[in-house]
Design a protein around this nucleic acid. Structure first.
Lengths: 120, 120
DNA sequence: GCGTCATTCAACCGTAAGGTTGACAAATAA
DNA sequence: TTATTTGTCAACCTTACGGTTGAATGACGC
């Protein structure tokens, strides 16, 4: 019976992570974090057409990361960071794994091949 | 001169968030967080073909979230949560925005239309 | 050496993503 | 009223994604 909720959450995470998986959209969110902006303002910095930027904003909306208020012909967008919390909750469960130096060492002992050379 | 590094980071974030934007891959990471697994083991719970699962693992690898050690014909996978930290760093900058109850109220006063009804 | 097991590769398929353009709609300004 | 501004819509294009299948690779067990 809770399955539906859980499923929903997964779908929501899909939307959020997908929305974040694009530089343009992350940059838009970054600007929205500072202040509200119209669609035109959000689109302005980019070379792409207004229509393309508009689509990006829509995918941010579908992920519920952005809310829009239409006033006259102008569409004001603001951020809603709450879904990011869910994403963060998910992440936090995993990053701790690497925290302890000891684990890092164990890892190395077990697999000396791909060690700390890191090759980046 | 730092531009290359910055750009690289954005591309890396793209890869990480994209990798996370899929239920199957998130579930694989979840299992890998508990212990090491072979490709076959990771693929087993799913209906999809082994080849498909193998592709998912590759996209996790490209995002550097998974490391692989080949021993004989068996490929062992383990998680590397370090890239998740970067993703988390990015996220943490934004979620704070909504923390204060006051901001929530201000938001409501400015835009009474799409209030806390939330409509999910 | 031979069959089998673990995995990838290559080709293909349908669909979604990200972009363009041109037409449209609605609110504002002249 | 007419023109202009703000944005979306619809159609289209190309490329990537997620999946399938069948063949190929390479170790292992006998």
């Amino acid at each position: 019976m809770f399955n539906r909720m859980v499923k929903q959450n997964h779908v929501r995470l899909d939307l959020v992570f997908h929305a974040l998986g694009d530089q343009t959209r992350r940059a838009m969110l970054a600007r929205l974090a500072k202040s509200e902006h119209t669609v035109g303002e959000l689109a302005a910095p980019y070379r792409m057409s207004l229509a393309a930027a508009s689509k990006h904003i829509r995918t941010l909306e579908r992920a519920r990361l952005v809310k829009r208020t239409v006033r006259g012909r102008i569409h004001y967008c603001r951020i809603d960071p709450r879904p990011l919390e869910h994403a963060d909750d998910w992440l936090r469960g995993y990053e701790r794994l690497w925290d302890t130096r000891i684990e890092r060492l164990v890892e190395l002992l077990r697999h000396p091949d791909n060690g700390p050379s890191d090759s980046r």
